[in-house]
Design a protein around this nucleic acid. Structure first.
Lengths: 108, 108
DNA sequence: CTCTACTACTCGGTGATACCGTGTAGTGGT
DNA sequence: ACCACTACACGGTATCACCGAGTAGTAGAG
């Protein structure tokens, strides 16, 4: 699949929220999960900028822990504000995607 | 529904392509159709920038015709390149939306 | 006949977002 | 010693939707 970056704007952050909402994890692993999920071209730098933004916006709790296979990891977990933001994201997604699907089916 | 602009990035242009692909129409009417479709906050300036971009990228045929109720209208229709772009858009949409829905359902 | 509302298009500037490239650094295998 | 993999940070870029203001044409109300 060719370039998806424009279509991911506004949704990739929500995907990262969902991933770290389902289990406490760190940037490198989030990138790998996104790649396996089908977003093969999403690269570490992109995920880290999103994580730093989430931290700056107070949506996550961050815990630094050593790793046995490399540098220390920054583990991210959603706080209450993060869970609310995630819920808002899915509500928006539901709204937008249903309307686009309707447009696709010629429902006008 | 609160602010959808970030989530519409990369998809709104596709929606406009779909609308003018199903029938030759003009900017003001496209805006009204988007509003009725549920994208209530999409405003004329946004649609016109998209239409000018489509024109610049050679995806549309443009015909200026007088109107009985106001200034002349610029009617837009897809050309062959536009139809190909529209098909690519729906393929991308199918790809991205299915994967996001899978993530939502916890399919990891 | 002026004023307002609706129709219709243009354009310069802004903010948000994902991406690119590069740099730094820790661990382990050959 | 070298390389691969892991792990994070950061400055700069392109794209996109949006904002705001401007320019016009028609028609109806007062």
């Amino acid at each position: 699949m060719d370039d998806l970056t424009e279509m991911l704007k506004g949704t990739l952050e929500g995907c990262v929220l969902e991933i770290i909402g389902s289990e406490e994890t760190y940037g490198y692993a989030v990138t790998r999960q996104l790649n396996e999920l089908g977003f093969a071209d999403v690269v570490e730098g992109t995920v880290y900028t999103i994580l730093l933004r989430l931290e700056r916006n107070g949506l996550v709790r961050v815990t630094k822990r050593p790793s046995e296979v490399g540098p220390p990891r920054k583990f991210y977990a959603l706080n209450e504000a993060g869970r609310e933001e995630l819920a808002r994201f899915w509500a928006k997604w539901q709204y937008v995607s249903s309307r686009i699907d309707r447009l696709k089916e010629g429902g006008r």
